[in-house]
């Protein structure tokens, strides 16, 4: 009886200190190794490539196209990106006679971080949206299908005019795996028409397969 009592009274205390150590170790790993998801309104899954060059995050002009072929333009949220977004909006308003108010242009700059994908004619009503409405609104994408009505061309033209012909430093193309080739071709066509021939495609990293010429070249350099 006394023996049984002794067992029942054994402390159930568990030392959690080691557990805390592990939890905070994992926590610090995630804090250091990951990056916050960019506020994208569009869902895009990038293809893989062997390129290991890091993506620039300052002064970026990005054209995205998703699996359905909807095309969006966006700018980085740093001052230079904002300045270019503002220039584009002002110029587009002037060229297409949209008469955008200052509030609408400010909205353009705000929305341009997440991506803007509406035809030029829909811009004024689209820019009246609040932040919440913008996130809810299913943007139809900038029309590029038809070569006579490739409106990405209008956006690019306005951007280049606003910078006085100076090409954007980092032109990124952010395409989805499933986008059909003609959309990509039409996006390229719009860029070519405006004299931009150099791009960076956003891809996720993939290891170089061993035994290939690139693999040998990289090993020689080391």
């Amino acid at each position: 009886m006394s023996k049984l009592n002794k067992i029942a009274k054994k402390s159930t205390w568990v030392d959690m200190t080691a557990f805390v150590d592990v939890a905070f170790l994992i926590l610090s790993f995630f804090m250091l190794a990951t990056k916050f998801k960019p506020p994208e309104v569009i869902k895009i899954e990038n293809p893989k490539s062997v390129s290991s060059e890091n993506q620039p995050d300052k002064d970026v002009f990005k054209v995205s196209f998703d699996a359905q072929g909807r095309v969006f333009v966006s700018f980085s949220s740093d001052p230079e990106g904002k300045e270019k977004a503002q220039g584009l909006a002002q110029q587009l308003s002037k060229q297409k006679g949209l008469n955008l108010s200052n509030a609408q242009i400010a909205n353009f700059v705000r929305f341009s971080v997440g991506g803007i994908g509406v035809p030029v004619t829909q811009l004024p009503s689209f820019l009246n949206f609040s932040e919440g409405e913008y996130k809810q609104f299913p943007q139809p994408g900038i029309p590029v299908q038809d070569s006579t009505n490739n409106q990405l061309n209008d956006y690019l033209n306005a951007l280049l005019t606003s910078t006085g012909g100076r090409k954007p430093t980092n032109v990124m193309l952010n395409g989805d795996n499933g986008t059909k080739y003609p959309y990509f071709k039409n996006v390229l066509a719009a860029f070519k028409k405006n004299g931009i021939f150099s791009f960076k495609l956003i891809t996720s990293l993939e290891g170089v397969p061993s035994g290939t010429p690139l693999y040998k070249q990289q090993n020689e350099r080391k």
């Binding site: 995630f30 804090m31 990951t34 990056k35 916050f36 060059e53 993506q55 150099s198 996720s204 990293l205």
Partner: peptide
């Protein structure tokens, strides 16, 4: 952190067209 961050940092693949 698991839900709000991304693991894979996107890379840039250079493309020049004629």
């Amino acid at each position: 952190f698991v839900f709000t961050t991304t693991m894979s940092t996107p890379k840039a693949f250079k493309l020049n067209v004629p």
